[in-house]
Design a protein around this nucleic acid. Structure first.
Lengths: 225, 225
DNA sequence: CCAAAAGTGTTCCGTCTACACCCATGG
DNA sequence: CCATGGGTGTAGACGGAACACTTTTGG
């Protein structure tokens, strides 16, 4: 193939995954101890380098699949980070992606195998390089979007109670929500469907389980909660 | 320097500038005919390759300065674009930046020298590669932000009339706004200051010129229009 | 004197917010 | 029988949307 742009500098490009989960009523992030130099042992996001034969999104999905064993996850680009010395080893430009997963879907063995763990977003340690900045930006985006897009369901199992759903919102937004107002809004959204099932895990009385109907949403395609 | 990540592929990284302006009550975009292969002659955004000794933001500013002769412009990252074959020449990952400038500040000679022109965003031709997609995303971001951030002033001269300001909003949002409601909202924002000057360009009666007070905004730092 | 743009308030309606009590059940 | 979490309605405040006429002045 003809080399058109031969005179310009090439750089390493990586993707970093900001993986959010929801557990014990907290918004959590998947981080681990970095296993290579430079920065070995520091807390870090999980990432990988972009290969010649894959797009950025493909790279992010590959890394995410390797990490979680899960495919078809909700994923969104957070942005590119390109300070010259952001990586102490060599010049690396990175593109951060944010993913939402249901913690229960994540195989514990695989998690330990990668040496990563769930850490509450409001107890995050100092992370490697500019990773804290990426996380901040991801959370900002998440907060802005959670009311306009049906994101929250990615953090929950297929069936969930309204209390669980409310806790997700509270964890993302970082503030308490009035129960009656919340449920009133949910009731107005007809692709959040009541099912015939009852959850007895968390209460003696039992709570009705709901489901997010993706097909019904695809038709309406507007969302406001 | 030690090479830590030697085994991985490096790629070309470029920045592309999505430069918005406001003229004749329309939101405009700066585009030109591409002057190099591949794609020579196609309509295209203005861009450049990222150098070894500059960050992404610095690269975008350098390219923007070269194009417009203007410094310290409002600029925001739109995102990274990394499809494998997005550039027909060679693998190039690009990071798009969106900038807002006051058309009157742009030297006509410099504009012609770079062979670029202002084209209304609702009459955009097919652009090179994935540039249309970048523009779409930039416009979406712009619309979302214009009500929450004082962006619009970057598209106007230092002094402007309320009618001009309203036209900027209408051009960005792509819809008409009620004059009385708009002015009511402006009046509630105290860092949009009335000046003693009158503009007689567009009306016989004359319209009061306003100014955006950046210092006053920095103190308040909340915005809603 | 008239065309053309600037400027100005009020009413209505829907939405958001605050708020407290009864229900069902397992232990 | 009681502790625990599930479930429900209303009133008042607030903000956004609709809407039409007067003013000024250059040509």
């Amino acid at each position: 193939m003809t080399v058109f742009y031969g005179e310009h500098t090439k750089v390493l490009v990586s993707v970093d995954c900001i993986v959010f989960g929801f557990d014990h009523n907290k918004l959590k992030l998947l981080i681990g101890r970095r296993q290579m130099d430079p920065g070995r042992g520091e807390w870090s996001l999980y990432g990988g380098f972009v290969r010649e034969d894959e797009s950025l999104v493909e790279a992010a999905n590959r890394v995410l699949l390797k990490l979680t064993g899960l495919d078809n996850l909700y994923m969104k680009q957070v942005g590119a980070f390109g300070a010259i010395d952001r990586d102490p080893g060599e010049r690396v430009i990175t593109v951060a992606y944010c993913a939402l997963i249901n913690v229960a879907d994540y195989d514990e063995q695989l998690r330990e195998q990668h040496g990563v763990q769930w850490v509450s977003v409001d107890e995050l340690p100092k992370l490697y390089s500019d990773h804290n900045e990426m996380v901040r930006k991801a959370i900002t985006l998440l907060r802005r979007r959670v009311g306009n897009e049906p994101l929250s369901f990615n953090l929950l199992p297929e069936l969930f109670t309204l209390t669980q759903l409310q806790h997700v919102y509270e964890a993302i937004l970082g503030e308490q929500i009035d129960k009656r107002n919340f449920r009133k809004r949910v009731k107005a959204i007809d692709f959040i469907e009541k099912t015939e099932y009852i959850d007895k895990q968390t209460s003696k009385r039992g709570a009705v389980l709901y489901r997010f109907n993706r097909e019904a949403f695809a038709n309406e395609s507007s969302f406001r909660l």
